[in-house]
Write a protein that binds this DNA or RNA. Structure first.
Lengths: 225, 225
DNA sequence: AGACAAATGTGAGCACCGCTCTCGCTTTTT
DNA sequence: AAAAAGCGAGAGCGGTGCTCACATTTGTCT
């Protein structure tokens, strides 16, 4: 156990992932080529398949890794706000970190939130890491609720059962209107970042980041008055 | 002029687009294959290039067409609301039509708002049709403003210059806070639809459409109180 | 009506892709 | 020391976008 081979294997897989990220950053996620990675490693193309059984498997590994990193930056941004009761600052920090992640590595953002790769179905392994960054928002909503803030929002009928389930199964102690508004904020943040990143704002406004600012400002006042 | 040849050419290009849509619906936008289209038409693969010089050119044609259709459904939904002063109903109708478009043809939605195809840069031809569906929202915002509603929203600094430009260049007579909030609503709607369509809600809530409902409800009260 | 040119389709070919399989070689386990 | 498992090489299959020389069809102009 823990022989030369194992260490070599870890090194090889790490190198594959590194080259995959490099290639993804340069050419986009859909252009990821196992053959090119093998070529860069001085290996014959079939050798890659000893480490990743298919292109989808490598994609899954990259996706999980990206979700973890996104979760990590969101958590770090939230934790960096010293005054924990400054909920607006925490929302701004969290959302800003998510946007910065997208700007820093657009290919990763596209991998996570862009068009699903055709024929690729996200396996179970991804759903855990995928929810990590959303938990930061849920935590914040909990703190807002605990501070006594109550939101006046008529929760849509279709959402009520889900919120009851979240309460019963996950022990979520946040009022339904707060969660519902929080999910709305989540959608708006994700939408603003994606619209900005995918270039849909260039023909509307000159400073694409302004839409993000507006979204965050709006929800800062809505969620943490 | 207007000879047999021209009609045959139109028929062929139409057939190509039809088959492309079919294929896209079945396998996703990124899996679109010129060879497969040629095969379906009983033509040798190189023949396609007489009609579309490249895969990207065909994609551009599909994108423009999809933008036009999205714009058309949004316009139709808005126009179908008889009481023009019922701004909430118009917002719901417009947003609902956009969501329905996405659900009906997810591959088209992915083509417009998903990951940009790697190496593909949207040419100038697309920006006109691309803005058509947003004009429906802008029109609505104008009617809301003209009805006397004033929104209390601090427009982000980065957005002010853009809104001034929209006013000066396009003659947009809508107060800045209204436009800013409207753009926020736009981001939220797009985000909710994309999150739902790309399957990012399945692990959060059971009824993915509920988030969309919440978003629309929220902005109905915010924009048209 | 006939000549000419443009439009159209053909088939071979290039370079790439994901992926499979077999064959030796090496490291690890028994 | 023998058996097993892991690994890289190489050939090969079927697919892709795209180019090019060639033949054929078709519309137009003299």
């Amino acid at each position: 156990m823990s022989g030369v081979r194992e260490r070599a294997r870890v090194a090889t897989t790490t190198e594959i992932v590194r080259l995959a990220r490099e290639q993804m950053a340069a050419e986009g996620a859909a252009a990821l080529s196992l053959r090119a990675i093998a070529r860069d490693m001085g290996m014959v193309s079939s050798g890659i398949y000893r480490y990743y059984a298919s292109r989808d498997e490598l994609l899954t590994a990259l996706i999980i890794d990206s979700y973890e990193r996104l979760g990590a930056v969101a958590e770090a941004a939230d934790q960096a706000v010293r005054r924990r009761s400054d909920h607006r600052a925490r929302l701004r920090a969290m959302a800003g970190a998510i946007r910065q992640f997208a700007i820093d590595s657009p290919s990763e953002w596209a991998l996570l939130f862009g068009t699903p790769v055709p024929g690729y179905a996200a396996p179970q392994d991804t759903i855990g890491p995928a929810t990590r960054y959303t938990l930061v928002l849920v935590e914040l909503l909990g703190d807002i609720a605990r501070s006594g803030v109550r939101h006046d929002f008529a929760v849509p009928r279709a959402m009520r059962a889900d919120l009851v389930r979240l309460h019963d199964v996950f022990g979520l102690e946040v009022p339904a209107p707060t969660i519902a508004l929080g999910l709305t904020a989540w959608a708006a943040i994700m939408g603003a970042v994606s619209l900005e990143l995918f270039g849909h704002l260039h023909n509307v406004i000159d400073q694409p980041g302004a839409l993000f600012d507006a979204v965050v400002d709006h929800y800062a006042t809505v969620l943490a008055p």
